[in-house]
Design a protein around this nucleic acid. Structure first.
Length: 234
DNA sequence: TCGTGATCATAC
DNA sequence: GTATGATCACGA
C-alpha cells in the first residue's frame, strides 16, 4: 500500500510494534497542531494557559496511546513512554520534562535500578514541537520523533542525580532540596498549588507534611539527547 | 532573559 | 490526594 502521501489519522488501535509506532509518529512530522486537532474533532485553544497538557493528549490520540490516567507507560506492551517537548526554532527545549512524582517516605533501601524514574526513562519516544508562545497553538508544527534509550553515560548521570536527591529525602532533608540540585535530573513541586500536602520525613526523623515533588529532566540534558539523535541520523 | 517554584485541567 | 498531560510567570 502506498501511504507516503497519506495524511495522519487518529489511531484506532494501539501500535502493534515499535516500527508501527515510529511510522505513525513520523507521519505527524511537519503537521500543525491546528490541523491535527480539527481532523480529530478537537477545538484548539487560543493559548495553553488553561490547557497545558493539550498537545500531549492530542499526540497520544494520533499514536494510539492508551488514554487515561493509568499509572503506566503510554505504550506498556512496547515499554515506551511518550513525551512531547516544546522547542525554540534553534532546537532548544523551552521547558523541563516531567518524569514522575516520587514518594517521600518508604524509600529506604531502594536502588536506582528499581526506581520509578529509571523505569519511566527506559525508552522514550520524544515528539518535538514548535513551542513558541508568540504564535498560536494552532500554528505550531510537530517535528521528527526520536526514539531514545539512555546511553551508559546518560544512565550514570541520571543515577548520580537520583541517588543524591533520594539520599536527601531519606535523611529528612526534602525541604532543603531545590531545583538546583542535580545535573540532569531535578526535583521540583508537582501539585495543584502550593497548599497541597503529602507525607514526608522531617529533619529529626519525624513524619511531616510537605509539598508533593516530582522529577524533571533539565533542558540541557534533553537538548543534548535530541542533538545526539540528529547526529546519528546524518 | 531565564530557571525555579507555582500552577492548570481532568479522572478517579 | 494521586495519577495523567505539562506550561506558566515572576523574581533574580
Amino acid at each position: 500500500m502506498t501511504d507516503y502521501l497519506q495524511l495522519p489519522q487518529v489511531a484506532q488501535t494501539p501500535p502493534a510494534s515499535t516500527a508501527e509506532l515510529l511510522h505513525r509518529a513520523r507521519a505527524l512530522a511537519g503537521m500543525p497542531l491546528g490541523w491535527l486537532a480539527e481532523n480529530a474533532g478537537w477545538v484548539t485553544p487560543l493559548n495553553l494557559v488553561r490547557a497545558k497538557g493539550w498537545s500531549g493528549q492530542l499526540i497520544e490520540l494520533y499514536l494510539g496511546a492508551s488514554a487515561g490516567s493509568k499509572p503506566e507507560q503510554d505504550f506498556p506492551e512496547l515499554g515506551i513512554e511518550l513525551k512531547t517537548i516544546p522547542l525554540t526554532p534553534e532546537g532548544k527545549p523551552l521547558e523541563t520534562t516531567f518524569v514522575c512524582v516520587t514518594p517521600l517516605t518508604g524509600l529506604n533501601g531502594i536502588s536506582w535500578e528499581q526506581s520509578n524514574v529509571r523505569n519511566k526513562l527506559r525508552q522514550v519516544l520524544w515528539v518535538p514541537l514548535d513551542g513558541r508562545r508568540e504564535i498560536p497553538p494552532a500554528e505550531r508544527c510537530l517535528g521528527m520523533p526520536v526514539l531514545w534509550t539512555p546511553t551508559a553515560a546518560q544512565d550514570a548521570l541520571l543515577k548520580a542525580d537520583w541517588e543524591e536527591i533520594t539520599e536527601m529525602i531519606v535523611m529528612g532533608q526534602v525541604q532543603s532540596i531545590t531545583a538546583r540540585h542535580g545535573q540532569a535530573l531535578q526535583l521540583r513541586p508537582k501539585a495543584a498549588n502550593s497548599k497541597a500536602l503529602t507525607a514526608a520525613i522531617g529533619p529529626n526523623g519525624e513524619r511531616i507534611e510537605t509539598l508533593p515533588r516530582g522529577y524533571y529532566l533539565k533542558t540541557s540534558f534533553t537538548q543534548a539527547l535530541l542533538q545526539d539523535a540528529l547526529q546519528q541520523a546524518y
